[in-house]
Amino acid sequence: MNAGLRITTFAAALAATFGTAYGVGKSLDPVVEDSASPRHESHSEASPSPSPSSEGGGGHGGHEAEPAGGLQVSEKGYTLDLETTRVTAGRPSDLRFVVRDDSGRAVTAYQREHDKELHLIVASRDLITYRHLHPARAADGTWSIPVDLPRAGGYRVFADFTPARKNAENLTLGADLAASGPYAPKDLPAPDATAEADGYEVALDGALRPGTAGDLTLKVSRNGKPVTDLQPYLGAYGHLVALRSGDLAYLHVHPNGEPGDGTTEPGPDISFAATAPSTGTYRLFLDFKHGGEVHTAAFTVRAGAAGAASDDEPTDVPAPPATHESSDGHGH
């Protein structure tokens, strides 16, 4: 074969390869947008991880630091088997999954935490859309719940649970979910000390610091007046989840105090102790209940080096108010 013929043949093969890759790429739709919510008990803070890309285990149980959760599909003998890996944006779909043990059998016994056996979080990769769901479990161990994701793109599904066995640890396992349809990316909202949620205003005070427990206080008001009659939701006056921008490392923290303990007031303040797994930007989602409805407020915060500020400005506190993005998305 002469040189000219070899070059022509190679060019044709290369064009075919790129054509196939382009077709596959067009059939898969990336990340999402929109927003909304999560839960409670003896949950703790996640501890520092070496880097945003490191993988770790769940993040609950007392107040001892633990690795960031949700980065692994399998951990400590359990695997999240997501049967529904693709849905269509804007259309109701049935999300189904099974948690399997190290022998491959479906887990059918769980400890109840915050009034539920399992808490399911669905978040878009751009951290704009957020859902805190409580699926139903069939006798064979299959979990299912209807979902309606508003925009196309990539999502992360988090299953937060504790198996019903002696000395079992709380786990947060994660798996990827795709929503097909026209994709229009959104930027993460700028850091802001206030957020609007269904006519409520929530103010955030405190710092999220890597490797060090810090207090976060969220004050709920409506029409300029403090809300002092918050209702218990899953055993608490508020639930807070933090997701790290980039890899969506999962951190679920438990509020300080609980309804009926004789000291915790039903608002307007809800306080938490939290530790960031690392420096970086995080999206916080607060769920609270008032007037018989669950509402979700979302914040973007930056966690800087422990005990130090950046050269430009403190990175572990919210920046001055910016454009508010509301959250939506509870499901039971």
Score class of each variant (00 low, 15 high):
P38T: 11
A249E: 11
G267K: 01
G90S: 06
R283K: 14
G235D: 08
E258H: 13
G238Q: 09
L216F: 08
Y233E: 15
G214N: 09
G104R: 08
E258D: 06
V220R: 03
D187W: 01
H134T: 03
G104Q: 07
V147C: 12
F272W: 14
H332Q: 09
S74L: 06
D287R: 08
A193G: 14
K225P: 04
L120S: 05
A15K: 01
S93M: 05
H63Y: 02
F18Q: 11
V99I: 15
D101G: 08
E33M: 02
G62N: 10
I270G: 01
H119D: 12
D101H: 05
V220P: 10
T279I: 13
L177D: 02
I270E: 02
G304Y: 04
A138N: 12
D160T: 05
G292S: 07
P52T: 04
A303H: 04
H332S: 13
V87K: 00
T212S: 10
K26S: 11
E64Q: 06
R100T: 11
S278N: 15
A13K: 05
D148Y: 00
H134C: 03
S51D: 15
P30R: 07
L149C: 09
D29F: 07
H295K: 15
A11C: 12
A106Q: 03
A306E: 14
A11P: 00
E41Q: 05
I128N: 09
K26F: 01
H324R: 12
T323D: 09
D247M: 03
D215S: 12
F299W: 02
Q111V: 09
A273S: 15
G257Q: 04
G260N: 07
E33L: 08
G154S: 14
L243P: 00
L149K: 03
P321M: 08
V32T: 10
